[in-house]
Design a protein around this nucleic acid. Structure first.
Lengths: 208, 208
DNA sequence: GTCTATAGGCGGATAGAC
DNA sequence: GTCTATCCGCCTATAGAC
């Protein structure tokens, strides 16, 4: 007798196989997208038989959802760096530059992260719940961190910390999207430091 | 005797049919993505037979590329509004607010534009040439317009007009992506005017 | 629990009639 | 030029052996 929605069945299935399937599925889905990924290739990548895949996951969609949720909640959750208690004692220019550089490094060095964002964006129409999970766990994470900083940093007297945080995150993420994901660096090149300097100059400025 | 790459063959094919195929293909590809779209459904949407589709376009990939190029170069090229000769005589607050509102209206009202961006972003790994076409014709368009404005507007003394233009466009487009494409407005709601006011305040400010 | 083998359908692409 | 009919491979999912 099975549960209505057995992501793993109630009888014991090998956790190693479950792990291998999630790992193999991740490779395939991140590389080829949802529709173009076949369960045959997932099974091969996971080094199990296709029937084993279907004994661990109800169907292709369930596997995809489980896998993306894991990436959202674990693997890519900490993109924007860990909290730093010393943060309010550091010059805003340094704090903001570090924040921007950590985010941009992620997009450039972890090539899987670009594919991950591509997948979330591309499937956000058919899998809105995964898009929302991405927003809750990743975008909102960065946003809250910056909001906290902008609200509590004494030197910055911003009239709207939340709007400023959106602008900062948006400028950074959009730069990554255009330059890296959409291959815009060949067409409209710009040093990342110019963007970051521009942002810092707009935000950290003597008020009249 | 046919050309090596006959997007349309050298003998006369009905232009009405070509148009119908492009239109039907657009509906299908924008709704379901590249891999999940079948040529059967394209033919049905275009109200022609599948063989006719293949007489006008070499294969699925050729149809997709022709179709996206057309959207990039025609349908969605003028998102960021037409040029305005009076622009330098208008207060920057008004100019920038209009620019931002036009872009955000496009993402909200023209529901096909969101699907179009989803498709470009999602397929930017497998079709980098289409991603570059998007950047050249749409992103760069908005960027240049703003660069021109920031460079020539007398009231704004920006130390780096290009970086500022990137920040402005990035904040707007990223807001649209998170709120609308990724359904973030349910999770982290924010009035668009707060974002726009924040941007204007950062950019149009008395310098010390 | 995991495998091999297979069912059953839909996919892209084409042959040949008109 | 456009159609109907069809080829054939790959797809998701499952049955049944071990």
């Amino acid at each position: 007798m099975r549960q209505a929605k057995p992501e793993r069945a109630d009888r014991q299935l090998s956790l190693e196989k479950t792990e291998a399937i999630l790992e193999g599925g991740m490779q395939e889905f991140l590389t080829h997208g949802y529709a173009a990924t076949s369960m045959d290739r997932v099974a091969i990548a996971a080094k199990v038989s296709k029937a084993t895949v279907y004994s661990h996951f109800q169907d292709k969609e369930s596997l995809f959802i489980a896998l993306i949720r894991r990436l959202v909640e674990q693997k890519f959750q900490s993109i924007f760096g860990a909290a730093d208690d010393q943060i309010l004692q550091t010059a805003p220019q340094i704090v903001l530059r570090n924040f921007a550089n950590r985010a941009l490094d992620m997009g450039i060095n972890e090539s899987q992260f670009l594919n991950f964002m591509r997948l979330i964006l591309g499937e956000s129409g058919r899998f809105p719940q995964l898009a929302r999970a991405f927003v809750s766990n990743i975008e909102q994470n960065a946003f809250r961190r910056l909001c906290y900083y902008f609200t509590n940093c004494p030197q910055l007297k911003l009239s709207d910390a939340e709007a400023t945080a959106r602008i900062f995150v948006g400028a950074i993420v959009h730069f990554m999207i255009v330059q890296e994901m959409l291959h815009g660096k060949d067409i409209m090149p710009m040093e990342r430091d110019r963007l970051i300097d521009g942002l810092i100059e707009l935000i950290v400025k003597e008020r009249s």
